[in-house]
Design a protein around this nucleic acid. Sequence first.
DNA 1: CGAAATTTGTTGGATAAACGACGAAGGAGT
DNA 2: ACTCCTTCGTCGTTTATCCAACAAATTTCG
Lengths: 200, 200
Amino acid sequence: MSSSLVIEDKIDPRIKRTRLLLEGAFSDLLHEKDFQSISVQDITERAGINRATFYAHFSDKYALFEFKIRQEFRAEIEKRTLNACHYSEDNLRALIQVVCEFIREASGQCKSPRGQFEPLMEAQVKEQIKDLFMAWLNQTESNIPAEIAATAASWMIYGLAQYWNHAKERMPLSTFMELILPLVNANLLQNEEELKSHQG
Amino acid sequence: MSSSLVIEDKIDPRIKRTRLLLEGAFSDLLHEKDFQSISVQDITERAGINRATFYAHFSDKYALFEFKIRQEFRAEIEKRTLNACHYSEDNLRALIQVVCEFIREASGQCKSPRGQFEPLMEAQVKEQIKDLFMAWLNQTESNIPAEIAATAASWMIYGLAQYWNHAKERMPLSTFMELILPLVNANLLQNEEELKSHQG
DNA sequence: CGAAATTTGTTGGATAAACGACGAAGGAGT
DNA sequence: ACTCCTTCGTCGTTTATCCAACAAATTTCG
């Protein structure tokens, strides 16, 4: 059950505990204040963790935020075992759905998503989308370098998901999905000669 | 806001945290197993606390249980500020109500209350009832030693509350209250000469 | 019953967290 | 500009927790 992208040794329970408390406190605070006005003091105070201990784990609140985002997004991916499988249209559809719902959830849960919030989330989520595609595409040989294809796909998917989320009248996700799936797929089909043989 | 019966210094957050986790794990387990079959290992494992650390706080699971009971009962008392006031019929009524509801709650939350469970709870709760009466009665001078009166009252109240809780057809608490209040009051009215002057 | 497995307390050494203090950086108001 | 106040990072020391191991007690089960 270990992730294919992260090595998780048996970690000291104390570390798990403090990180969990810091994340929890941070989440709570994001419901109340906007990202900017939350101080490290606020977080540690709420968490019942000493301020000095915070800096033993994260360099600042941005690092905590990124850690949290990465972790939550990874959890969604792993819940559907997308990290343990290969490229297919079904898996791509599942991935897009995760991204859309993740963005919707996150921006719904926070006081003012538009500040520093979304750019930070964007960077982390895109990176993970890219990593996932890298794992998928590296199983094949292709005329286009995997990193290029993965980068393109991650930007496209995140951009589309954000567009969907911010739209004045947000259309049903299933409708949106059928709309964009051909687009995303088209870019990846250039690698398909090899893929066909892998999927049978 | 400090309790009149316990000195609570600024306590190391780590201590608070581990005790809280141990208590929580213990509560959870009481929903699943009966008291006897819960091991210290179960508790620490569930709490994410090292087993050795458990023994730094409690000598065994009985000590943890007693600590928990005392703390919860005290919380109920303090919530109604019964610890900060004197004897009166209203306060007595409130106290009896706390005891009855506390016993009902506790025995309702646990898998098999009748084992080691209730005797342990009884000892702790009676002791606290007695302490409370001691605080109430020590404000007065009386022909009967306060400790004697407090002991009698604590046994009587707990016994009546347990009777009420275990009855096949549990009568409404308000009914029961009016039934027993004269009884309990009678024992304390022997001290009333002095009390009258205190309450005006 | 007796063997195997589990739980129990306890220990010593390693590590994470708490604490208090410090100077520096940033903001608010005069 | 200035002071006042808060937050920020960082440091050294103390304390709580972790961990592995141990013998003793207890439970389980054949």
